[in-house]
């Protein structure tokens, strides 16, 4: 059922013209450097407000198994009074599902984060922007953690580890304005 909805939503997106007047796509080169391909969309809600989301995912990071998929919705308030221009403050969330093998351990579960960010957007040309943003996220994780080589089912059905950590956020994004 959910699969059907997602397919329908995808075609809906293709057939319908977005009504928003400004739509931009972007990619965070920091994530890209960590072998996490990502793409984001930002739309303008008003003179000072934009809403955006990144979709990111990966299979391997430098040879290590790291199956991650996640989405990062965000809201930004543009202090300059003009979207995608100059200083902004933002709030973001992140939801991810992952399976990561790190040294002899494997982590499989979900995470949820909320955070604040401050950034600056530079107009490079008619359609290109560079955006710098930094901030801090409060991340809650809930996963099943086990030693590689063990029998997975021995650890039971439920996640066996959860916690909250504070993690820094740094983004350097290249943005292209679609319309």
């Amino acid at each position: 059922m959910i699969k059907k909805i997602s397919i329908a939503a995808f075609f809906f997106l293709l057939t319908m013209q977005a009504n928003a007047q400004m739509v931009a796509v972007k990619t965070d080169v920091v994530k890209d450097a960590f072998m996490i391909p990502n793409i984001g969309v930002d739309i303008v809600l008003g003179d000072k407000h934009t809403l955006g989301a990144d979709l990111f995912g990966t299979k391997k990071i430098y040879g290590n198994v790291a199956e991650i998929i996640g989405v990062t919705p965000r809201y930004r308030y543009w202090l300059s009074g003009r979207p995608f221009s100059r200083l902004f403050v933002g709030a973001n969330a992140q939801f991810a599902n992952y399976t990561i093998n790190w040294e002899d351990k494997s982590y499989h579960g979900n995470s949820f984060a909320v955070g604040l960010a401050l950034g600056y957007s530079i107009n490079l040309s008619k359609r290109f922007n560079i955006e710098l943003a930094g901030g801090t996220d409060l991340l809650y994780y809930n996963h099943k953690q086990y030693t590689l080589g063990d029998i997975y089912t021995n650890y039971g059905e439920e996640p066996n580890a959860a916690g909250v950590i504070l993690c820094p956020r740094l983004e350097i994004s290249v943005m292209y304005l679609l319309r």
Binding site: I2, I5, S6, A9, F10, F12, L13, V41, I43, L51, A53, L55, I69, G70, V71, P73, F95, N97
Partner: peptide, 8 residues
């Protein structure tokens, strides 16, 4: 995640 992203 996909639905959230596409409908956004």
């Amino acid at each position: 995640i996909l639905i959230l992203f596409l409908l956004f």
